[in-house]
Structure formats: C-alpha cells, structure tokens
C-alpha cells in the first residue's frame, strides 16, 4: 500500500523514480536506489529528526539480480515514529557507510559484513565481529548450509577433525 505523507511527497519530487514509499501493517518504509545512500539517510536525520538508528541488517535473495536488501530501521525521539529504509545491491558491490551519521552503525555494519559479506565504504574498521577473523564464508547467505563450517579453520585453530 502506498504511504502518503508530506515528507514522502517532498522526497518523491526531489528524487523521482529513485524512491518509493510503502506502508505495510501500519509500518512505513522507503525503497530507494542504492545511489541515494547515504544522502537520504543524512536527510532523514538532519531534516526529519530520525536521530536514532535502531538497527542495520540485510536479507539475501540469491535468485535476484541484485542479491541483497540492506535495511536501516530508524526511530525519531521527537516524533515517536519509526521508518525503514531499504535498498538493493548486487553481490560484491559496496555501499557507503553510515557511521558518520550514526556512530552506532559501527558494530551493526560490522555484523552485516560478517554475516553477508557486504562491504561498507568508509567504515573506520570493517572486520568480522562475531565470527573469528580468519573465517571463510558468510553464514547468513542462503547458499550457506546450516551445518556448514569452515573446516580448515576448525582443524587448525581448534585441533579437532570437525566441529559437528
């Protein structure tokens, strides 16, 4: 269902077809072209008071040409309102980091990188956060099996044949 509000009208006239606004079950979200990141995020913080970045995450759709959805969940303390921003990027493509907009993005982006292998350009220290540094593979991609492990890492570092 389309989401209608003065904020949406303003951004639609500004960005045209690069931006779409929908609402589902009472929750609003923007689907934007990846070239609008991070400008739209900065505008949402500076002009629309979305001062709190709740979460950054991604979803993998292996059959699509642009395989990943990157999702920002934002909240505004003054407006008491939530909004999500979604964009699609291809495997291997990178996306600008939003650490300079919200410092909390630091660990959140590291986790997205760790789990999906999405590169955030301009991140001050992009490295794995939950998995060990030398690990190969990105577990939350759909082609990564639930029992799959980096056997080589397990054998070298844990000294056991298999972690299973």
């Amino acid at each position: 269902m389309p989401w209608i509000s003065p904020m949406v009208e303003k951004y639609k006239s500004q960005y045209g077809s690069g931006l779409d606004a929908q609402t589902y079950l009472g929750q609003n979200y923007f689907s934007v072209d990846h070239s609008l990141i991070p400008n739209i995020l900065r505008l949402l913080r500076d002009d629309q008071q979305f001062d709190y970045c709740v979460d950054i995450t991604a979803v993998h759709y292996p059959k699509r040409e642009k395989q990943f959805d990157v999702v920002w969940i934002l909240y505004s303390f003054p407006r008491n309102e939530r909004v999500r921003v979604k964009t699609q990027i291809a495997d291997g493509a990178s996306i600008p980091s939003s650490v300079s907009i919200w410092p909390t993005a630091n660990w959140l982006e590291r986790e997205v990188y760790d789990m999906f292998g999405i590169q955030f350009e301009g991140h001050p220290d992009l490295k794995r956060i939950l998995l060990p540094d030398g690990w190969k593979g990105y577990p939350l991609r759909k082609d990564y099996g639930i029992l799959q492990q980096d056997q080589e890492w397990v054998q070298i570092n844990l000294g056991i044949e298999s972690g299973q």
């Binding site: 589902y24 079950l25 929750q27 709740v54 979460d55």
Partner: peptide, 20 residues
C-alpha cells in the same frame, strides 16, 4: 508475504525482531 519490525522494552533496553 511481508515484513515487520516489532520491539519491546526488555530489562536491558529495546529488543526488536525484524521478520521477513
């Protein structure tokens, strides 16, 4: 088909679930 974000005030802070 769809997605939702819902969060509650857990003892430690905002606990949210984003489900697709």
């Amino acid at each position: 088909v769809g997605e939702i974000y819902h969060s509650i005030e857990a003892p430690k802070g905002e606990l949210g679930y984003f489900i697709v």
